[in-house]
């Protein structure tokens, strides 16, 4: 299954946010989207996930979802989006409750996803009791349990402190390498982009366009935090982005 963005454009009122964005995400491929703040990265992701209607162009699914996939296009949210009144297990179970599954099977799937993210001991805890990193692991477990084909990740590590982010990044690279999910990873952190992505879309400031595409061929599994080649790639992207970021920074909010 491929996820395709076809000439997507969007705006709010008189404000153009996205303009003429086209790209595709092939099976098992991770595409990172980076750009200055306000360039419409998150809007693009919501359009790809069917949460927002674009003004122009469309998001397409090519081919069929892999068998057994309950929710082929699945989000991971920046602020985790956990229900505070449900336990960890309850939050993961939420997304299975309206599916035609036997109770025993559902319990097994929830337990499996929790175990996969190292949350087995926290099943009965409430989100409030967990650290930010653990909360996002719940978000990832919830995404895993519906057996997605494409993960849409909206700055999933941005709400975490630097050390926790490093730990979660290791979990995430492990997960993506093992499960062969495809993914769109929106971030403003170039280090994260070069760690995870095979292709990086560099966007211009508002209205966001694709400014350049950077390819990194090396498999995710072999990449590490202190890698010189990746650092060079991130540096090169930053050079090309710097002017845009400066301009975006100086923009008036109501411009």
């Amino acid at each position: 299954m491929r996820l395709v963005a076809e000439r997507i454009g969007h705006g709010y009122g008189a404000l153009d946010v996205l303009s003429d964005i086209s790209f595709s995400v092939a099976d098992g491929e991770i595409v990172a989207v980076v750009g200055p703040s306000g360039c419409g990265k998150s809007t693009l992701l919501r359009i790809l996930g069917g949460l927002e209607r674009p003004r122009a162009g469309r998001a397409l699914i090519e081919g069929t979802a892999p068998p057994g996939s309950l929710n082929p296009i699945t989000f991971v949210f920046q602020d985790f989006a956990l229900l505070p009144w449900r336990t960890v297990a309850g939050n993961v179970a939420l997304v299975l409750e309206d599916r035609p599954l036997a109770a025993a099977e559902r319990r097994e799937m929830v337990a499996g996803a929790l175990a996969r993210m190292g949350l087995a001991d926290f099943a009965d805890a409430y989100p409030k009791q967990l650290s930010g990193g653990m909360r996002q692991r719940v978000g990832l477990a919830r995404a895993l349990v519906v057996r997605p084909a494409v993960l849409l990740m909206d700055e999933p590590l941005s709400a975490l402190d630097a050390q926790t982010r490093e730990l979660l990044m290791d979990d995430l690279t492990g997960l993506l390498a093992a499960e062969r999910f495809a993914g769109v990873y929106v971030t403003h952190n170039l280090g994260e982009a070069v760690r995870l992505a095979r292709r990086i879309l560099v966007m211009s400031r508002r209205p966001g366009r694709v400014r350049s595409v950077v390819e990194i061929a090396r498999p995710i599994a072999g990449r590490s935090a202190g890698d010189a080649e990746l650092a060079a790639a991130a540096q090169a992207i930053w050079e090309s982005l710097r002017e845009e970021a400066v301009a975006a920074d100086r923009e008036l909010a109501d411009g």
Binding site: G49, L51, N71, T74, F77, D79, A81, L94, D98
Partner: peptide, 19 residues
């Protein structure tokens, strides 16, 4: 964002209201 989350996982409207 909680409502969008529920929609993104395909929860039916009634479940979103209830849960």
């Amino acid at each position: 964002t909680l409502i969008r989350m529920a929609q993104s996982f395909g929860l039916p409207t009634l479940s979103i209201v209830r849960k």
